[in-house]
Simulated scan of single mutants.
Amino acid sequence: MTIERRSFILGATAILAALPRAAAARHPLSIAYPDKSPPNSWRADRGIMRGILVDLMAEVAAKAGYDFDPRPLPLPRVQSEVESGATDGMCLVATPARLKYALPSAEPLTTGHVTMFVRRDSPMHARLEQVRSLDDLAATGATVIAIQGNGWIKHNIESRGIRTVFANGTIGTVRMLIGNRGDVIVDMSHQITWITKHVEGGAEIEELPAIMDRVDWHLLISKKSPVAADMPKLDAAIHDLKANGKFATILGKYGIKA
């Protein structure tokens, strides 16, 4: 074997040996999202994921050195995938149940108010206008419409014995309310407001002024994921994103003020 050929083979071998290490440095960060919950997350045309939390995490992943892999799923599957470790993480409220199997980011990705939405012609409208707390809501006898798997609803609504009916996705909750298949939605103000502007019959829905809760949406990484070791890096990326103008630009894209 000539010296030139030996040098070529050794050089090629060195390059190939370096490739797995380069690939490992860009391990994809898989994040599961509810597929019917705009403007936070939804499956758009050709299966592409869109939404506030999708855009925010794309920036966070890039800052932390990860390729980004968003996965659209029904909410119950979002949680089960993260609990099993099949998917690295999700972006949801850090409820006690979720914290049993996932690590939360040090600061939230977004924060918002929980309010009530009713039909303008609802026979429950006058009573619901007087509600100022979740205990007041329980006393009305109203039926709450919620998305299946909503941890906040389980912890705050179902725990009070309030009758609850479930829809497939957040869009489904609004459609059920339009169809008089329940009395009230208790959910994130910006999310339900956005949906009522984009579905037929949404003008029949009114937001009541009482703020029922203020909640944070965190990045939650499965305790079974190797990404859990990188939480400090992800925390730093979230902090940096929220400290610069890109955060406000992403929220503004969906009509929300940072």
Rank of each mutant, 00 (worst) to 15 (best):
T2K: 14
I3C: 14
S7I: 09
F8P: 02
L10M: 13
G11P: 03
T13A: 15
T13P: 11
I15L: 15
L19Q: 05
L19W: 05
A22F: 15
H27C: 00
H27Q: 12
H27M: 11
P34V: 04
D35W: 01
K36D: 12
S37K: 00
N40Y: 12
R46K: 14
G47R: 05
M49S: 06
M49L: 11
G51H: 02
G51Q: 04
L53I: 00
V54Q: 02
M57Q: 12
V60M: 06
A62G: 07
G65T: 06
Y66D: 07
D67L: 12
F68I: 06
R71F: 11
R71M: 14
P72S: 03
P72V: 03
P74I: 10
V78N: 02
E81G: 03
V82G: 07
S84Y: 08
P96H: 01
P96V: 01
K100F: 14
Y101Q: 06
A102D: 05
S105M: 04
A106Y: 03
A106F: 02
E107D: 10
P108M: 03
T115E: 13
V118S: 07
S122T: 08
M124C: 07
L128M: 00
V131H: 02
R132Y: 00
R132I: 02
S133G: 00
D136C: 01
L137F: 01
A138D: 15
A142L: 11
A142D: 10
A146G: 09
A146T: 00
Q148D: 13
N150G: 11
N150E: 09
G151P: 04
W152K: 05
W152R: 01
K154T: 09
I157E: 05
E158G: 01
T164M: 07
F166S: 12
G169E: 02
V174L: 04
V174W: 02
M176H: 09
I178C: 09
D183H: 08
V184P: 08
M188L: 14
S189M: 06
S189I: 00
G201I: 00
I205A: 13
E206N: 11
I211K: 10
M212H: 10
D213F: 05
D213T: 07
W217Q: 11
H218C: 02
H218W: 01
L220Y: 08
I221D: 03
I221G: 00
K224S: 13
A229R: 15
P232K: 08
P232Y: 09
K233N: 12
I238N: 06
H239Q: 13
K242V: 13
G245I: 06
I250C: 03
I250E: 11
L251W: 12
L251Y: 12
K257A: 14
A258R: 13
